[in-house]
Computed example of a mutant assay.
Amino acid sequence: MAGSERTKMAAGEWYTCLDDELEALRVIARDAVFEHNSLPPGRRGNIGPALKSLLGAAGEGARIEAPFHCAYGFNIFLGDSVFLNAGCTILDTATVRIGKRTLLGPNVQIYCAEHHKEVAGRQAGLEIARPVEIGDNAWIGGSAIILGGVSIGEGAIVGAGSVVTRDVAANTTVVGNPARPAGRG
C-alpha cells in the first residue's frame, strides 16, 4: 500500500497537496502564524508561543519579525540567534535548516515545493518537496528568493533581490537572477 501524502512529501517523492491531512496541518500553521502576526510585540516576544511550539526547532535568541508566513512550520529549524526580518515566507514542504547567527532580510522567500511540469499534474496538486539548508553566519538580502534543493554555505551572502537556484559555496557572495558569484558576468 502506498504511503500517505504526508509520508511521500517527507520522503521527497511526488505527492498531492490536495489532501485532507496536509490541509489540516496547514490550518494549524495558519492559526499559529495568525497568532504570531497579531500579538503586540511585547507579548509576542521573539516568536509567538503557538508558532514557537510548532517549529521543528528554534534556537536560543532566534527571532521572527511579523508579518511571517509558513506552510507547515514543523519543517523549520532555526539555530541560535537567527533573525528573520518582516515579511519572510517559508513554504516548508521539506526541511528548512537555518544556521546560527544567520540573518534574513525583509521579504525573503524560501520555496521548497516544486509543482509538476505537466498541466494535468498541477491540476492534480502534484508537488515534490526539496530541502533548503543555510549555514551559520550567512546573510540573505531583502526580497531574495531561495528555491528548494539549495544549500547556502557558512558565511555566504545573497544579494538583495537575488534568485538562488543552485548551491552557494561558503564565504561566497552571489547576486542577480539567477544568482551568480559577484564580479562575474
Rank of each mutant, 00 (worst) to 15 (best):
V108R: 01
R184D: 15
L54I: 03
G48P: 01
T173D: 07
K100G: 11
S151A: 14
V33R: 01
R26M: 06
A94D: 08
L22F: 07
H69M: 07
N46S: 06
D20P: 14
G149Q: 15
G99W: 12
N46Q: 14
A62C: 05
V108A: 00
M1N: 10
L104E: 03
I47T: 03
G185Y: 07
I145Y: 00
L54K: 02
E118S: 13
D92I: 11
K8N: 09
E21I: 08
E133W: 05
D167C: 08
A66V: 00
G79E: 13
V150I: 06
A179F: 09
E154D: 14
W14K: 08
R43M: 14
I146F: 12
P41F: 05
G87M: 05
H116D: 13
A50D: 15
A124V: 09
D92V: 10
R130V: 08
I146N: 04
R97I: 10
V96P: 03
A138Y: 03
Y111A: 07
L55E: 05
A113C: 10
N37D: 03
A179W: 05
G155Q: 05
G121F: 11
G148V: 15
A50M: 11
A113H: 10
E21A: 10
A129P: 00
I47K: 01
L147G: 08
T95V: 10
S38K: 13
N37V: 02
V108E: 04
D92N: 05
E23V: 12
W139P: 03
P178K: 07
N37S: 02
N107M: 01
L84W: 03
A138D: 02
Y111H: 11
N107T: 02
R43Y: 08
A10D: 09
L39R: 08
E118T: 10
G79N: 15
R63Y: 09
Y15K: 05
A94I: 10
I145Q: 01
K117E: 13
F74T: 04
S143R: 02
R44M: 07
T7Y: 15
I128F: 12
G153F: 06
V174T: 08
C88E: 01
G105S: 09
P181F: 09
A2V: 13
R122L: 06
R26L: 02
H116N: 10
V164Q: 01
G135Y: 07
Y15E: 09
C88M: 01
G12R: 14
G185V: 12
E5P: 12
A58I: 00
A57V: 05
H69I: 06
L91F: 15
I140A: 01
H115G: 13
L78Q: 07
L51Q: 08
D19P: 04
A10W: 06
A29E: 03
V96H: 00
E21K: 09
N171F: 14
A120R: 14
L54S: 02
E5K: 04
S4R: 09
A2K: 12
V82N: 04
G99R: 15
A179P: 12
N171E: 14
E118P: 01
L147R: 14
I76C: 06
F77N: 06
A66R: 00
G121Q: 15
E127R: 14
R30V: 02
A94K: 08
L104C: 05
G161D: 02
P181V: 02
D92E: 06
A179M: 05
R30Q: 15
C112F: 13
A170R: 13
E35S: 00
I64V: 13
